[in-house]
Simulated assay, not measured.
Amino acid sequence: MGFSGDFVLARSERPLMELPQFGAGASCGTCEGGCFRPCAELTDGWQTVRSRHGSPIDGIRDWLRRLVAETGAPALLARVMDSDICQVWGLAPSGAAWTAFLDPVMAADYDIPVPGPEEVRATAGRVAGWAAEAGFRAERAALLSVLTKRADPFVEDLFFELIEACGLPPVDPAAAGDEPDPPAHPGHRPDANCPSGAELEAAVLDLARDRHLVLECAGDDQCYAQVWLRPDGTYQLEYRDRGPAEHYWTRTASVAQVITALTGWVAGEVAWRESFDWTSLASWFTEPTA
């Protein structure tokens, strides 16, 4: 079971979550506070958000037109199905528009026609034009590579490769601030036996199905993070922060997200938590009060 939902890239002087397209008004009715959440902030007001589940957006082209009119800047929307299929729509204020399927080989498995070389080059040209209107210079070779390559393994990762190929710059350290992320809690210190870096990445990648990897705090048995590779091939990620009342879990099909999360945990950071929708497990470990 992979990710299904939308990713949106847009530019705004305000946080995207304050725009009517993403706030509580965009809720499907089951997501408290709306169906979107911030995903990543780039430079000069460029931001990405993702839907929490499925997609609350109907009428993609009309929705994009309203977003572009609201922001006065080009925008992208990527719709992902089960981490296999990803269709991307681009629209600029000039009205220039394009669409493409990422990982065309997988798309063909779903009976979606695979574009020929000339069509791919034409699409790359339209994407480059979109990037130019956004104020960036796209690398044509990089665009062609992204538009034709296979996902490895999750197609949503290709959306972010496409953004990079469009020439959007990385996060500006000055805009992000000089202060590091705050620690998970005072005294957070991974146990000396916790893997880190390449060793941690290998430990996650080498997990067999129905096996766990547990990372513990030094001297605090109420502080740990763990991942379970479930029998269905998805990952169940959990963390406990100083006590059973602060025990949370989530699921993901992305091994890259798991590695990033556990790397952040080892570093004592908390920003990695924002990439997931967490469910509390406190009731499993605490007795109800009379």
Rank of each mutant, 00 (worst) to 15 (best):
D220T: 09
A290Q: 09
D277G: 11
F285Y: 13
E18N: 06
S254M: 02
P115K: 05
G90I: 06
G54Q: 09
L158G: 12
A107L: 03
W278C: 04
A175F: 01
V214K: 11
T250E: 02
G243C: 12
A208E: 15
A282I: 09
R240D: 01
A10C: 10
D191N: 13
P195K: 06
E118F: 00
G243Y: 00
R150M: 08
D241L: 14
E238L: 11
R251K: 14
L143S: 02
V227I: 11
S196T: 15
W272C: 13
H53K: 13
E41A: 14
P15I: 00
R209S: 14
P113N: 09
H212Q: 12
F276V: 05
P93F: 02
A78G: 14
P113L: 03
P20M: 08
P56D: 03
G167C: 10
G90F: 05
G95P: 07
T279I: 10
D277R: 10
G197L: 11
E18A: 15
C28G: 15
H185M: 10
G59I: 07
A225T: 13
R65A: 15
N193D: 15
S12N: 06
R65H: 06
D44E: 14
E269G: 13
C194F: 02
V49T: 13
S196W: 05
W284S: 14
G268M: 09
V146G: 05
G23A: 05
W89T: 02
E179I: 09
I112K: 11
G25S: 04
I112D: 03
T123R: 10
I85G: 06
D157A: 14
G116V: 03
A97H: 12
Y248S: 10
G54E: 11
R209Q: 13
T234I: 11
S83T: 01
R273P: 01
R242H: 06
V204W: 07
A96K: 08
E118R: 13
V105A: 15
S4C: 10
R273C: 12
A131W: 03
C217K: 03
W278S: 06
V146A: 04
A124N: 08
G135W: 08
V155M: 00
Q21G: 03
G72R: 04
A75T: 07
G45T: 03
P115I: 07
Q222F: 02
E139I: 06
T43A: 15
I163H: 01
P15V: 00
D44V: 00
Q257E: 15
F276H: 03
F101Q: 10
L205W: 00
